[in-house]
Design a protein around this nucleic acid. Structure first.
Lengths: 201, 201, 201, 201
DNA sequence: TATGAATGAGCATTCATTCAT
DNA sequence: GATGAATGAATGCTCATTCAT
């Protein structure tokens, strides 16, 4: 088996573990067991546990960007686009490491790495949403509306719902996320906000 | 030094550690070092690590409820009330253990305790906000508006902002929270939402 | 309360604990709790845990001797006397520290103290039984019978039954000892042995 | 060095420690020191302390059964057989963990495991002795003699002697057991008992 | 006398990391 | 490449003992 292939296997296993147990509680044995590799063998591919994590996060970020772009093309009207986009974030984070979640667990040690990554993610998302708002909704919004600010707020609201869902979930890992409910929440609040934005000051 | 005094010292130290490192990463040595006590001495005051944590959370919860009630009386109009309330949550959580934060780190072991507490907090907050909405805003909202649902959403949005702030903060622990910015965010979104609710369907 | 009185209370509590938990597993807190004294207070009466134990064993030995002597007077015929005596040992050890039991747990540290005590006990018992045999049974035994040897063997058999009972008991502490069964065992084997001794070589 | 070999080394070391110090007082450091392994390394071979102990006991039990069966074939007449068998028990227990000894130390925690094992051992031994009695002595015993009951009693007596020997031994651990003396004791009492059984009721 | 307070030493267990083969 | 083996450093927790009051 090839180097890269093995590394990908390790990353996949690590993603699984980190997203379920968190960074600290994930052991190299956990990862090794999934890949079918001895714990020690992991050190052939990565310098240490931290290195696995870093690589994972950065690859995931790239993947996320690609995913964003592809989803972009299939979205119709403004409200629906936004809701659809915010909803797909959940599906995405459900199956990947949610760094927002991990960041809370993080010790000082990783804090800077996390912050950097989280802000990188967020900036990407906000600018993406801003594109949508600029393209489809500008005409309908109050004068002087700052679409960047609105985009940022929409992500904020979406994250708020995510955290609430997480807190209510049985297993804390979004494994059995109640998507219909999330969708309903988004479908309730997004139009309210957009309508509020359009309304008279 | 008195029993209670020492216990409070320990609680204070524990609060500091738990809120900074999380439950798992906080060691009894960490706490002991702050209080100036041997690790073993902590067992003189508390049965075990978990007991310290539980006491801390419950005391904090009580304090929170009291704080809510007292703040209630000083709030004027609807929009301002809500913004003021949501803002004071930040001050509050800045100085206490944010269980929302800890919950994400939690293992299955404490998951139920956390979930219970988090939901307890949330329910309290939502019903409190609902009271405000019922008292001041009902007449202005669209017919059939579910104030409970709106209250829930307002807390969700507020939490979203909190998480965003946390992610952006230098130290991940809200130690130097940018309150003016948070206030600005709230003052932007809350009226938008309320206006959206009042507007025509 | 008087010194001696307190010391006796402590001894009583210690006896209870040691006989139930064994030396190692008995904590000074256990003893203190029973007496209603703080753990530290015990050090006013005894130098340390070991001192409590030693005093206890020696006092118990004296008590045992007295108990032996008093029981001596009430016993009728030879077989019955022996069985009665061997049976009363069980009642006795049930309510006191069975050093035979503790000795097995003992570390090198106490080994010599234990051995000394156990042998002291045994010697006393054997010589007591020998007295009975000499008084009542000599005429009936084969010529040249060594009553000392027989006495020793009877204690041995009795101890064998005790250990067997202990092993079978639910709680390892003889708390619910099946005395009728023990009595039946003794009533089966003692006559067999005595008959065997009387019979033709 | 091979896996199995190391595990055997560990078992040997553990046997040594457990039989000398008892289960509770034996530390993994003790065992590790003997094997020349770090305490943590023991966890490479066994899940935990309890697992070492259990494996040890069960292996010993198997060995014991085999030993019983092989010795069975070399035994001549009834009296001699019984004495020889009871004597070989001593040699056996001298070199293994005497669970009878450990059981007394045991806390509630292991009590059930111990009891189970002890009773298992005893049942095996009794039924083995019963076989001998049935084969060789039945004709000579009084009518209605319950060979099972007698077998049980013989083991009881043997254990009584074992405990007495233990108590008298220098080190409490049967390391320098006085076998000639034990043999003499058995050779004295066994015929007495068997003769008593044959005699007139 | 009595005790609350404090602690050192100890223990079972976990885990990231190293290294010889 | 792969791994079995080994370990140091932690961690939560226990307990006999000391000491100032």
């Amino acid at each position: 088996m090839e180097q890269t292939e093995r590394k990908n296997e390790i990353l996949a296993a690590a993603k699984d573990c980190f997203s379920r147990f968190g960074y600290e509680k994930t052991t190299l044995d956990d990862i090794g067991k999934i890949v079918g590799l001895n714990k020690a063998s992991l050190y052939h591919y990565y310098k240490n546990k931290e290195a696995i994590f870093k690589e994972l996060i950065y690859l995931q970020a790239e993947d996320f960007i690609v995913s964003l772009t592809s989803k972009m093309k299939t979205m119709p009207t403004c409200d629906e686009k936004i809701i659809f986009y915010l909803l797909s974030r959940f599906t995405y984070f459900k199956n990947t490491i949610d760094i927002n979640k991990l960041s809370d667990e993080s010790t000082q040690k990783f804090a800077s790495l996390f912050r950097e990554l989280i802000l990188f993610f967020r900036t990407k998302e906000v600018s993406f949403l801003k594109t949508i708002l600029d393209d489809h909704c500008r005409g309908n919004l109050s004068d002087g509306s700052d679409t960047g600010k609105i985009a940022d707020m929409l992500i904020t609201v979406s994250d708020g719902i995510k955290h609430k869902t997480l807190a209510e979930s049985e297993n804390c890992f979004m494994e059995k996320t109640d998507f219909p409910k999330i969708k309903a929440e988004l479908e309730f609040i997004i139009p309210v906000i957009l309508r509020g934005l359009k309304g008279p000051k």
